[in-house]
Design a protein around this nucleic acid. Structure first.
Lengths: 348, 348
DNA sequence: CATGATTACGACAACGTTGTCTATGGGTGT
DNA sequence: ACACCCATAGACAACGTTGTCGTAATCATG
């Protein structure tokens, strides 16, 4: 077909001509395949650099069946700081390896066409692989859709079926344990915990860590010190009200996430308690809220971006591998305790 | 080349065979071109549906030079709620039109390879168009890179050069004016404003609206009632301390964004002032922080997702158009006032 | 020095669409 | 009955890469 006049775009053919080799040889150099002499390789590379050649992704993927696209799947994209963090990390890894990042959303169950529309999107986007974030990483329908599409995937912080695919995670339990001990070591003996939603795996693990820490110190945590919460600030507020109404009032409150910790701060203010003088409050996650709160929250930093980065790395590394899914690998990342202004030793 | 045994994937050829037409006709149906009889079209469509055929994006884009990818460009992806909101809206529009969304980041000036790496990414991602978010939408280097790449683009809330491209925006000035009047109508007469960074266009427009509102009511705003801020909660805290130290203490504080409003809440608490009884505080943006704060912030909802959605729509609609950039269109979206718990009439 | 193995490279088809051009058939006007 | 036109549809090349396979040149081996 006679198409446009020369577009000006340089193709592999131009490079081949300039280097005096065949296009296949250029292709080999570009793709770092072997079977090219050192001298030839150097010459081609130089010409590629000076002419500023960049391979055409579409042609490439049509021929090789690789799209150089990685999908990140979220359930709710809006309003969560988490989404941005994940993308930062994922993009870092993508850029390093010459991939691009496509954001895909599974509409939540209540929306029309939820997983259905998602599955279609999966099919025509032709990802080389996808990263599943919570809670999509534990959704049976989503997993089924991804597996049906035959896509390699890595999950971030899954709660179940750890044998099902590679994943990355951090040790919530251990972090919560340390967070609790930090309060203990400041001198707190009446430490309460604000729990997360029942079905939320990381909430359960954090509670577990809290309980373990107290038991480690020879204290059996009292049931009334564990207040039910929903990961929302209002629920943190309510839980704190209940805790402060106890006959033996806690001197420190450990909320399972930062948002509830902010609610706890508000409740403390309402009761005329100054934080951290009269009451210590600590959170978990290290979201921007923790930094914006007043006083700034002492919390646990969850390496969200790094987890996403690791996930994408695992994915890309796995591409060479046949039977990717079979090789169930897991990579653990380190949390860190963040010391700010909302926790201090109790008044003597 | 002899490649894999039949992959099972259905191609346009299968559809053509099943429908008893040529592949070109199927192509025409898929792309909604004319020149196909109603009956033929219906038959093809049905077969496409029953066989679940989806065109191969790579082949398509190789041949047609359209990638069906839209890029959203951010400067900082992490930590900002804004990013997620933009993506929600952009994704909605993309999905409707069969496009996918690729996230791209211009590394901030301090990072190595900032715009450089971005420009390269632009070139090989082959977007059909991009959406620029603030502050990238006013960065001369970014604009140059996009224009050099010959990409159509739409800007979200630009501050300058409105003639340079299509854009979407909301009327910050008017919204701030209404927000101020809301306080006025509650009975407040000493209304202070916490300003944003000097170079931030929307901050300037919001300040303008505040000033206008007061003048409308015959009050010349006093310079000491406009406190410098940096859009961060700490700066809101500091600004509020200065405002509360004034001989004639304001009864209401309007912060140019929610984060600073949260800082203001903290300062109020420190001074033993109960919000909204002793002091009203209102914000701007309606970020999740506003809902999480205590008391929940009365603020102005910025339709971030909708703006992004509109931007993508404009982009896609413009594709048919030659001379896209020449047709500088602008689309305005409506804000809305959000009534929560942080503002009330002043004590008599 | 003949033989087989290895290395470096090229020719050519294939990936699955869309663009251009051409062919066919039925209706219309005269 | 004739030319003409429009609506419909197909043939075929082209998009820019990579996969497969072949081949010439080089090397080690007995």
């Amino acid at each position: 077909m006679q198409r446009d006049p020369p577009t000006g775009k340089i193709t592999i053919i131009d490079i081949a001509r300039a280097a005096g080799v065949s296009i296949k040889t250029v292709s080999r150099v570009i793709n770092q395949e072997e079977g090219v002499g050192d001298e030839t390789r150097a010459r081609v590379l130089e010409i590629v650099a000076t002419m500023g050649y960049r391979p055409n992704v579409s042609a490439r993927s049509l021929s090789s069946r690789r799209s150089y696209l990685i999908g990140v799947i979220f359930m709710r994209v809006g309003a969560y700081h988490y989404v941005g963090e994940v993308q930062v990390g994922a993009m870092r890894a993508c850029r390093r390896a010459g991939y691009h990042l496509v954001v895909e959303q599974v509409l939540p169950p209540e929306a029309v066409g939820g997983v259905q529309g998602f599955a279609e999107g999966l099919r025509d986007a032709r990802f080389d692989g996808v990263v599943l974030t919570p809670p999509t990483c534990d959704d049976p329908e989503v997993l089924a859709a991804v597996e049906t599409a035959g896509l390699p995937y890595v999950r971030i912080a899954p709660h179940r079926e750890f044998e099902r695919s590679p994943y990355v995670f951090m040790d919530d339990r251990k972090a919560a344990r340390e967070q609790t001990l930090r309060l203990w070591n400041m001198g707190h003996r009446r430490i309460a915990f604000i729990d997360g939603p029942a079905d939320h795996g990381s909430a359960a693990r954090r509670r577990q860590g809290y309980i373990e820490a107290l038991r480690d110190r020879g204290v059996e945590p009292r049931p009334e010190w564990i207040a039910k919460g929903e990961f929302l600030s209002l629920s943190g507020f309510d839980a704190t009200e209940r805790l402060l109404a106890l006959p033996e009032r806690p001197t420190a409150i450990f909320a399972a996430n930062d948002e509830m910790a902010v609610g706890a701060l508000a409740a403390a203010a309402k009761h005329g308690l100054s934080v951290p003088r009269d009451l210590s409050v600590v959170g978990f996650d290290d979201t921007p809220t923790a930094e914006a709160a007043w006083p700034r929250l002492t919390t646990v930093h969850q390496p969200t971006a790094e987890m996403a980065e690791a996930a994408v790395e695992m994915l890309i590394d796995g591409f060479g591998d046949e039977r990717f899914r079979a090789r169930v690998a897991a990579r653990q990342l380190d949390y860190s305790l963040v010391q700010r202004d909302s926790a201090a030793p109790p008044l003597a």
